[in-house]
Design a protein around this nucleic acid. Sequence first.
DNA 1: CCGTTTATGGTACTCAGTACCGCCCGGTAA
DNA 2: TTACCGGGCGGTACTGAGTACCATAAACGG
Lengths: 217, 217
Amino acid sequence: MPATATRRRLVEAAFRLFAEQGFEQTTVDAIAAEAGVGRTTFFRSFASKEAVVFPDHGPILAAVDARLASASRATADVALVEASAIVLTTYLDEGEVARARYALTTTVPALRAAEVANQRSYQQLFRNHLRGWLGSGDDDLLAELLANAVVTAHNHVLRRWLRGQSEDPAGDLAEAVGLATRSLRPAADTETQVVVLRSGRDFEELLPAVRRLLDEG
Amino acid sequence: MPATATRRRLVEAAFRLFAEQGFEQTTVDAIAAEAGVGRTTFFRSFASKEAVVFPDHGPILAAVDARLASASRATADVALVEASAIVLTTYLDEGEVARARYALTTTVPALRAAEVANQRSYQQLFRNHLRGWLGSGDDDLLAELLANAVVTAHNHVLRRWLRGQSEDPAGDLAEAVGLATRSLRPAADTETQVVVLRSGRDFEELLPAVRRLLDEG
DNA sequence: CCGTTTATGGTACTCAGTACCGCCCGGTAA
DNA sequence: TTACCGGGCGGTACTGAGTACCATAAACGG
């Protein structure tokens, strides 16, 4: 069930009525009437009253899945950023609709629950691909942590933009995802990564310890 | 509304009927009748049909909150492990009831949604306390990431135990929470931390780059 | 032109959740 | 003992989401 004309009219009617009267005060009958269709048609297009608030969830999920599927372990870092950027830019393009949705999800408990369920499907998507990239070793806790971190970072940036606290959402996303995954991500065998942490000691003082640790690795 | 006798009987009746007929097939009327009370009394004890599956959510949440409130920045690490251990041991003590709940939440979508909503309340609890410990600096992304990581680690260990794949859940929890938070946790200013990542190059070859990065820091 | 999908609207039903009311029962004061 | 009162409980009635089913009409292929 792609974006047919009926679907679009139902979404517009729903957002209009939700803005006027609130979510709970608006019945499905009223939405269908506003869109000029029958109540049955509404439930043919949307599985629930909550689903009409997230009409593009399926397509976006598929796009993210496709982006992640086209990556390999070597290109995983970029894939994580770009896949989450797909979601972010979709919201950015929506503009006021995204802000209206934010107002609803922060107000109506049922919609907050639905949003969390949606985020869960993203998290599972990332986790599944990460499992493949990480070789599905003895433990998949790392994949779960990374997937969760990416989704959390994305949501954080998105919320900041929705509140008007971000001028460069795309840049913030790359930075946030990097922060979220940098420390958890194991370095590829052939690559070289240098992690710099602030230290109160002199570099020379640390050298023996660093050398010893690297030798053990 | 603490754990009155009526509440306990409702919970037992509900789990009995859910096991026999499934969640959707069991009406609230049937649960109330099985417990020997009226339908009204059920909704006086539980806000929804789903809530009866998580009867101890409120008390556990309060216990976790109390444990986190008794900690400071210096004792944050232990507090994170012990607070999540409160939740874990509660499930461990439940035994078969916890496994029955797991069977339900993995099967019934509505219950999965309710469980996710519960986990969200834990995550918010951890996040709020972490914000205080981290000094609520310029950005609270770190608190969110850490809170999410702790909850994810806990859920991972709990699920492994529920599936019978863990002999030492408490030990696994400490390890998992440590892994989840170690890399994200910022080093205190006066401390020195050395992060070792595998590298295909010789140490001597890396020295100039390391020195340059440290100087910049 | 006809048979067959396909989308739609309407009707009827189940059930969760809410509001309200009347009842009973234990405690308290006169 | 009687009168009063407050809290817990059961029953009734209602709204509204979601499902099942059926009839119809338009589109479509032969």
